[in-house]
C-alpha cells in the first residue's frame, strides 16, 4: 500500500522486443530458425529453444512469458526456464538485438 495514495502498488513487468532491424526466418528444416541483422547482413542460426524465445520477442514479451513458452514446449522446470530466458535476453541485449519496450 502506498502511504501517500492509499492505493496498492502495481509493478509493470519489463517488456522486451527484437529491434526493428532484426528479422527472424524459418530455417531449412522444422524447428530451425535464422536470425538476420539487416544492418550488417550478419546471419545467425538458432536452435529450437532459441527459436521459441525469438518468435515471442518479435511481438514484445516479458521474461515470465518467455519462461512459460519454454516450459510449455520443453521438459524444464520453471526456475531453469526463467534463468535461461534471462540469460538469453542479456546476451541479445549485449549484441543490441533486443531492447526494453516501455
Amino acid at each position: 500500500m502506498n502511504s501517500f495514495t492509499n492505493r496498492e502498488s502495481t509493478t509493470i513487468p519489463q517488456q522486451f522486443a527484437l529491434r526493428s532491424w532484426v528479422s527472424l526466418e524459418p530455417g531449412l528444416e522444422e524447428n530451425e530458425w535464422v536470425l538476420i541483422d539487416n544492418r550488417s547482413g550478419a546471419i545467425c542460426t538458432c536452435n529450437d529453444s532459441a527459436g521459441v524465445l525469438l518468435v515471442a520477442l518479435q511481438n514484445g514479451t516479458t521474461c515470465d512469458q518467455l519462461a512459460d513458452a519454454l516450459t510449455s514446449r520443453f521438459d524444464v522446470s520453471v526456475i531453469e526456464a526463467r534463468q535461461d530466458a534471462l540469460l538469453f535476453i542479456q546476451q541479445l541485449s549485449g549484441t543490441g538485438f533486443v531492447y526494453e519496450n516501455f
Binding site: E25, E32, V34, I36, I43
Partner: peptide, 22 residues
C-alpha cells in the same frame, strides 16, 4: 539465395533443394 540456405550450408554442411524424404 535465402539466408536459411547460407546458414544451413555453413553450419550443418548440407543443403537440399528438392523435396527429399526427411
Amino acid at each position: 539465395l535465402q539466408p536459411y540456405q547460407l546458414a544451413s550450408f555453413s553450419t550443418k554442411g548440407y543443403l537440399h533443394h528438392n523435396r527429399i524424404v526427411s
